[in-house]
């Protein structure tokens, strides 16, 4: 069985994240680029299955600028067997549709039984890529799984949906997304880090993929304006002297919030 895990290099949420006011794109120099944690969780889920079943190959797939390749090494160090990196300058600023087309083409090219992704990235927060890929690839999708059971021919689990939880099952090949309810990702062991250096990373450009060459032939989403909000100023800080509860109540009453 081949499991492909979608992982996205994103600006580290632990530091400031900056948008260029000129291009509207992420200012990559302003932040460190790291693998999105939710993708690491998806990889963790895949690796756990690979460790409990035989003949499971785990591959990491990303579409990201060339410079982000070093982040993929972490996925390999965690235990993925290989990585596929779609890097092409023509993809700078790609919208969701273009991203979905490219990832679908890469998935078709490499083949898969199961694709696992995070439910939403920390920089885009769209949460629409997995259903989008399901349509392009014509495979069933289950989004936001909180538990995951993989068998030779199906994937099944509980998903957190609106107003309750749902149990769903899909025949393979299929695509799923997972939530933070799944276990934390492992830290790569030293041996994993050493081994990762020898693992293959296949680098692809648009020319290797069957995608529409002229990006502008289809309608796209474009940014028309970017503005920075003024940062919030800190207000009044008080130390409790036995009456802080009363003082908060008075503050709320003053502002007509209670």
């Amino acid at each position: 069985m081949k499991i492909v895990v979608l992982m996205k290099p994103v600006p580290d949420t632990w530091g400031p994240r900056v948008l260029s006011l000129e291009t509207g794109l992420a200012d990559r120099a302003a932040s460190e680029t790291v693998l999105d944690e939710i993708g690491e969780r998806a990889l963790e889920a895949a690796l756990r299955h690979a460790e409990s079943a035989s003949d499971v190959e785990v591959v990491v797939l990303t579409m990201a600028p060339e410079a982000a390749q070093s982040t993929l090494r972490k996925g390999l160090a965690m235990g993925a067997a290989s990585a596929v990196h779609v890097a092409d300058e023509r993809l700078a600023g790609a919208d969701l549709g273009r991203t979905a087309e490219v990832l679908a083409a890469a998935l078709r090219r490499g083949g898969f039984d199961l694709v696992i992704a995070g439910d939403a990235s920390t920089d885009g927060v769209g949460g629409v890529l997995v259903p989008w890929l399901a349509e392009l690839l014509d495979v069933p999708a289950i989004t936001r799984l909180e538990s995951l059971e993989i068998t030779a021919d199906a994937v099944r689990g509980t998903r957190a949906t609106d107003g309750g939880s749902m149990v769903a099952q899909a025949a393979l090949p299929a695509i799923v997304s997972i939530t933070e309810a799944l276990p934390d990702p492992r830290f790569p062991a030293l041996r994993g880090i050493m081994n990762a250096k020898k693992k293959p990373v296949e680098q692809l450009t648009l020319d290797d993929l069957e995608v529409e060459a002229d990006e502008t032939a289809s309608p796209r989403s474009i940014m028309t304006a970017v503005a920075e909000r003024p940062p919030r100023a800190a207000g009044e800080i008080i130390t409790d002297e036995g009456d802080a509860g009363e003082r908060i109540a008075a503050f709320l009453a003053d502002r007509r919030l209670a």
Binding site: G97, V128, S221
Partner: peptide
Amino acid sequence: RDVAGRLAARLRAPL
């Protein structure tokens, strides 16, 4: 979100 992702793919519309 699931419906929107699928719909955009079908319509080839931006999302």
